[in-house]
Design a protein around this nucleic acid. Structure first.
Lengths: 212, 212
DNA sequence: GTCTATACAACGATAGAC
DNA sequence: GTCTATCGTTGTATAGAC
């Protein structure tokens, strides 16, 4: 049982295998990425892979969990910014992250395998969408406390905001289609931010009571 | 070249193959659906499949294109409804469609294979998201003409609306996760509609000028 | 066009030496 | 743990009879 030994968990070859498998899974999908290809890319023999992982599914699970743990959190937003600036900044960061090739490949991979690997789908959901929305919700609460936004249900609002960000531009990029200039990152963010500002503008009493 | 003959295009066995392949691709994904399984399910021999399609990719393409052509269009919305009722009705229809198992399976399949099959990804995009958004945009224009909504850029608005509809509930269902009651279809639609109504409420002058 | 039978390659996984 | 070599299976695709 190599997985339970200490050296196996921190082996250089094990890391090489994980990195190679990750790259191949993201590039080609689960089925198309063969164990031979992983071995070749990692610079090890196929038998070595099976010394560290019980089978292909096990290797796949380890790869996904590894990626989910690298849970990049957004940098804090300056408390001096107003609602529009804050939403724009956070929206730009999120959409920028969502459109990165690796993020999209991970999304394709996990959604495609979700029916066969429910636990991995859950891990992905918790580490990705949930974590991101939690940070946005926290920021919305902050804006609410400052009287800059009417925040009743921050989770619902975060959901609406991320939904608008993950609209046409995301879909086009996910499908690998050419992107018209009309659906740039900046325009998508601006439209989502403007809609949020209009729909959740603070009531006058709230703004005054907190400003006074 | 059986594909070019008239009988081949309207063959009963060909249809059986397409139906079987469609079901298996949607259930298991491209790689996991074997030609043997397709043949067994269609009740034909494998050789018959290769008499109608050049290879597996060709069969896959025919399946995707067939599904894209079945382009169900929304039933017309009664012109007597106000903005909230219209948005709620159309939002419910769209979300209901998006959450159907076949729709989700198609989404998983096409997004997963998009990097290897750009043309199919485009066909899917045009027949699905674009067509749906076009209908919503048309409905928004209608509401705008009646002075019930401030419609400047109907395509952008349709994008924002569908984005809010395709948020957390869609993601959870796509990943096969258990769904809390808090993210039901009705609540998701209501939140998206309310946000639209607040953000795009008609200006008083517009409403009055068209109402008077 | 449709079948049965089969060729041929690729894949996941293992045996055994070191 | 790591290698080389290989096993057994499965998969795509085809040959040849009807």
């Amino acid at each position: 049982m190599p997985v339970s030994t200490r050296s196996a968990r921190f082996s250089a070859k094990r890391d090489a295998i994980l990195d190679a498998a990750c790259a191949l899974f993201l590039e080609q999908g689960y089925a198309a990425a063969s164990m031979d290809a992983v071995a070749a890319r990692a610079g090890v023999s196929k038998a070595t892979i099976y010394a560290h992982f019980t089978d292909k599914d096990d290797l796949f699970g380890a790869v996904i969990r590894m990626r989910c743990e690298r849970n990049r959190t957004f940098a804090p937003v300056s408390p001096a910014l107003d609602a529009r600036a804050t939403l724009t900044l956070i929206g730009r960061r999120l959409l920028d992250l969502l459109l990165q090739p690796d993020t999209l490949a991970m999304y394709r991979l996990v959604t495609a395998e979700a029916p066969r690997q429910p636990e991995l789908a859950r891990a992905f959901y918790e580490s990705g969408p949930v974590t991101g929305k939690a940070e946005i919700a926290r920021m919305l609460i902050e804006l609410g406390h400052r009287g800059l936004l009417a925040v009743e249900d921050p989770w619902r609002m975060a959901d609406l905001f991320t939904g608008m960000l993950r609209a046409d531009l995301f879909m086009r990029t996910l499908l690998g289609l050419p992107q018209p200039e009309s659906s740039s990152i900046e325009q998508t963010v601006a439209a989502a931010v403007e809609t949020m500002l209009r729909a959740f503008a603070p009531t006058r009493t709230t703004a005054q009571s907190l400003a006074g």
